[in-house]
Amino acid sequence: MDQHEVLNRFDRHMRRDATPDNSAAVVEHTGGVVRQSGGPHDWNGVLWSDLDEESAPAAVAAQVAHFTALGREFEWKHYSHDRPATLPALLLAAGFVAEPAEALMVGEAAALTAPVELPEGVRLVPVTDAAGVELMASVHEQAFGSDGGWLRQRLLAQLTGTPDEVVAVVAMAGDVPVSAARMDLPPGKEFAGLWGGGTTEAWRGKGVYRALVAYRARIAAARGYPYLQVDASDDSRPILHRLGFVQLSITTPYVHKP
């Protein structure tokens, strides 16, 4: 993989030329930034910026004013290769709070499709309706210790409004959900996004997470996506590295609440 070229492709496809991730959201190019604005359960934030030390302060202030007027919490999704170097300090000074950094990791979909043997009694079930979404939210709450309400709202909206652009799957041990993940398939892009891969504590280290990656890789490759993209936590980063993913940057969510 030519890492420099793939990073340039990622910036162009997924950030600079981003498209709305659902039918209710709007992507705008304004004041040197690319932002998405949507409803209270949508992702609201800045995807890309082309700023320098002179233009950055006004751009930050303009985005705070825009989302505050909407009454929206929003995220400035910063990458370690973004410029200017002073941007993180400007965001903090404007009232943003930095959440834990994650690694931008990319893998070639076709190289990640090999099936993984699941533990005895575990099966992968596609999520297509509200009942499946509830199983996913249950896993999310157990694996990450956070409320799954936003996931219920977002995934139900995707499955209803743009079902061809999302894949969701839950691993079941008998009747108990033990792991779950989803994948965004943005039309016309080269990168399928892997999100929300979480496994309940008792089932970690048994290959279930790897099986969910392979499951989604097969679908992405069949749909013509050459790359898989993950914002990897410290827990998932070594697993993805062993599977063949490459780290291209570090991304930090800077969150501003109205």
Rank of each mutant, 00 (worst) to 15 (best):
H4R: 10
R9Q: 14
F10Y: 15
D11E: 15
D11Q: 11
A18G: 03
N22K: 03
S23R: 14
A24Y: 10
T30Y: 09
V33L: 07
G38H: 12
G38A: 13
G39F: 12
P40R: 14
D42R: 05
W43M: 07
W48T: 01
L51I: 04
L51V: 04
Q63W: 03
A65T: 06
A65Y: 05
F67I: 03
T68F: 03
G71M: 14
G71A: 10
E75T: 15
W76M: 13
Y79G: 06
Y79F: 15
H81G: 03
D82C: 05
L87W: 11
A89G: 15
L92V: 08
A93R: 14
A94F: 06
F96A: 08
E99Q: 11
P100M: 12
A101S: 15
M105C: 02
E108H: 08
E108P: 00
E108W: 02
A109C: 11
A110R: 14
A111R: 12
A114N: 13
V116Q: 15
E120T: 12
E120C: 03
R123W: 09
R123M: 11
L124Q: 08
D129A: 09
V133A: 06
S138Q: 14
S138K: 05
Q142H: 03
A143W: 00
F144K: 05
D147Y: 00
R152C: 04
Q153S: 13
L155C: 02
L155E: 02
L155Y: 05
L156F: 03
E165V: 01
V170C: 11
V170R: 07
M183G: 01
D184N: 08
G188L: 11
G188C: 14
K189I: 02
G193Q: 13
W195F: 10
W195L: 11
E201R: 13
R210F: 02
L212N: 08
A214Y: 10
Y215T: 04
A221I: 08
A222N: 09
Y225I: 00
P226Y: 09
V230C: 12
D234W: 10
R237Q: 14
H241P: 00
P253I: 07
P253D: 12
Y254K: 06
V255Q: 10
H256W: 12
